[in-house]
Amino acid sequence: MVAHAVAAEIGLVLYEHCQAAMVHGMTDLLGVASTFSADRGGPIIRISHWSKARDGTFSRTFDTHEALPGKPAILVVPGRLTGPPDADESAPYARWLLDRHAQGTTLASNCGGAFLLAATGLLSGRRATTHWLFADQLRDRFPEILVDADKIVIEDGDIITAAGLMAWTDLGLRLIDRVLGPTIMVETGKFWLIDPAGREQRHFSSFSPRLTHGDETILKVQHWLQARAVRHLTLADMAAQAQLEERTFQRRFKSATGLKPIEYVQHLRVGKARELLEFTRRTVDQIAWSVGYEDPAAFRRIFSRIQGLTPGEYRTRFSSGAELRIMA
């Protein structure tokens, strides 16, 4: 038997009454994608299930690679049909998820699983989605979250949320695209009879920052930047946040993330700009200013370099409706 490299581990977090169809369906979906990738000579996904024991510890209760050390690159929290978990039930899971996130794990949720992510505090000030039936409840319990129940999936770097029930298929395809690439994602979608149309924007991929590099100092700066990238930032600001000399910070940041600090900020800003181009009527100049660029011409150059499209072309292709397609 040929051994294939593991691209990443994706773990599913089990809790009482969580949606079994999503857990087993996602496991099968990722497994099919791994098979297609392996058939092409590519890497596969390690799939695991995680459960909380009576003593409060968490461990794998299912694993496709039991003898393999490591930790999940992505943890996914499913929803459940009986309604979102309350604060007391969420607390131990939130503490564990927060700890995993601090170590570089990307967190994702489907349906009412957003409530467990919300309990970590990581969604504060960020956009998130859940089942439309639970949207008002999520807003009431966590008013600091920008709840957008119109979206099927909201991908925001280190946090991904998906809407209700069968939206796990959309989430699964996003994860496959992120880990194994768009070709395997499309092939998997066709096999599952999930229409990949509308997911082609992933060919103009959202920025997926490298978070599992093991440099805790740089990881903390990445988390800090996620909420502040649209503000005026200098290299000195970032180095000060890391408590490192500027040259040392630049070297460690590039080694950990694969990008220079300023390049990384540009990717974060373009990600925010894509969202505004898709879902608002703001002009390109207004969007440039709102994501931290005083010079709209410079913004257009950077956006085109990163996305391969001008802001106007991007809006024409990917805006949420024809009425938003305002050329710039």
Rank of each mutant, 00 (worst) to 15 (best):
P85C: 13
G79D: 04
F36M: 10
Q266A: 14
L309A: 10
R252K: 13
D28C: 08
W224A: 08
L180E: 05
P69E: 11
G258D: 06
R210T: 14
H213I: 07
L138H: 02
V230K: 09
G189A: 13
P85I: 13
A135V: 06
R282K: 13
L259P: 00
G112M: 01
A162T: 04
L29D: 00
T257P: 04
T212W: 02
F62H: 10
G25E: 06
G31D: 11
D140E: 10
V284G: 09
D86N: 14
L122Y: 10
A114R: 04
A167G: 07
T161L: 01
G79K: 00
M22Q: 15
E278N: 07
V221P: 05
G121W: 14
G172L: 00
R60H: 09
L268E: 13
R80A: 07
L117R: 01
L98H: 14
I184T: 14
A87T: 10
A128C: 04
G121I: 10
D215H: 12
I74S: 05
F58S: 00
V179P: 00
F318T: 01
D39A: 13
G164S: 10
R251H: 14
R46C: 00
T129A: 04
W168N: 02
D86Q: 08
T130E: 03
Q250N: 13
G321R: 13
D88Y: 06
T61M: 09
Q222T: 15
V32P: 01
A149W: 04
P84M: 05
E313F: 07
M185R: 13
R174D: 02
I47V: 15
S90Q: 08
E278D: 10
K151R: 15
L146W: 06
A236M: 04
I160K: 05
L244I: 09
Q103E: 09
G79E: 01
I326W: 11
M26V: 07
Q222D: 09
H223E: 04
L146N: 09
R127H: 10
A167V: 06
C18M: 08
V291W: 00
R46S: 03
F36E: 08
K151H: 14
Q137S: 13
P84Q: 04
H65E: 12
E245P: 06
P261W: 00
F115C: 02
A20M: 15
R325S: 12
S90H: 07
I74W: 07
Q286F: 02
G41A: 08
L98N: 12
V284H: 05
A197L: 12
A149P: 03
R127W: 08
Q201Y: 11
I262L: 14
A21C: 08
R300A: 14
V13A: 08
E144S: 15
T120C: 04
M327K: 07
G198S: 06
V179W: 00
A118N: 04
A227D: 15
L175C: 00
W289R: 15
R317P: 02
H232R: 14
Q241A: 11
L268N: 08
P78I: 01
E323Q: 09
H131N: 15
A7F: 02
V76C: 03
G172E: 01
K190I: 12
V291D: 01
G181H: 08
K151P: 02
R269F: 05
R247F: 11
G25L: 03
Q103H: 10
R269H: 11
L225I: 15
P72G: 03
T130C: 12
R40E: 13
D295I: 03
A135G: 08
P261V: 06
H223Y: 12
L117P: 01
G312H: 02
D55P: 02
K254R: 15
R100S: 00
R141L: 10
